[in-house]
Amino acid sequence: MNPAFSVLMFTVASGAGYGLMSLLVLAQLLGLAPPAGGRNLWMPAGVALGLITLGLCASTLHLANPKNAWRAFACFRTSWLSREGVLAVLYYPAAMVYLGGFWVSGTVTPWVTASGLATVFLGLATLFCTGMIYASLKTIPQWHLPLTPVNYLLLGLMSGAVLLLALVGDTWSAVRLPYLCLLLIGVAALAKLAYFIRIGKPSGSSIQTATTFTRARVRLLDQGHTADGFLNKEFIFNLDTGHLVGLRSLAVVLAFIAPSTFIGLFARTGQDAFTVVAVASMLAGLLLERWLFFAEARHVVRLYHGDQTV
């Protein structure tokens, strides 16, 4: 699949935003965070909502006919993309009631609790829907996996945790944020490695099942047109296999290994600069990871254009 930069931006930015907000709200509700204040609530919440909004705006850039984008809320009973849109919009009132409740009462009231739980649920559910948009496509074997939504959820929570650490530092006494970050990075890295191993398996479709000639070798002689059309441009993206190992390794280093190293250094030295570097490396790594998620995905329509398997 041809990676669209707007979609990479959208999923990385809003994933980090939902992860950050969910962890922040959960920590406040469970009493793990210090009393809500500027640095412990408004700043991280502002960054989270900013990232989510930036991501949602980026997501509209890949629409070829954005004037009809408002119609995307219509089919939430069947379409994961529509569900994602509905939940993403419902998220804002829930988050606003939560933050407004704190603003007015300054403490955890039943209203704050209820809206906080709704915020956490809607944020994580939106991330799940994003994953399911891809996982529901039977046409792309590398996406049609339970690991796809798991990865989206874990990477969102992981990047949210690292961002939270960079914003509030190691100032929370009830929960040591550096260790929470390391735990989430570890789990997310394991799930991503499992994904890399899983997509090495060939799928059941081949040029034979695509053309009905299952008892002979089939080769493409002519695709029927000289210049590349929509199908070629959208679905046929060839990643040089020689670079694949290097790119995957780079993604793993930037997204998981470097951030955990810098967080370890931060925990030891207390230098805030380390957490900033950790965030920068992680976001670059996640962008590369998301690019690979598209570049490695092989749509079955490639079989009609001459690929033997996908």
Binding site: L63, N65, A72, L81, K138, E234, H299, Y304
Partner: peptide, 27 residues
């Protein structure tokens, strides 16, 4: 054509390459 927003998801879901985005109309 009056409702399509050109998100391409239907083309992604089609295994047969039967759907093509119109480059000018965006649908």
């Amino acid at each position: 054509q009056d409702k399509c927003m050109g998100c391409n998801l239907c083309a992604w879901a089609c295994p047969y390459g039967a759907r093509e985005l119109d480059a000018e109309q965006g649908t």
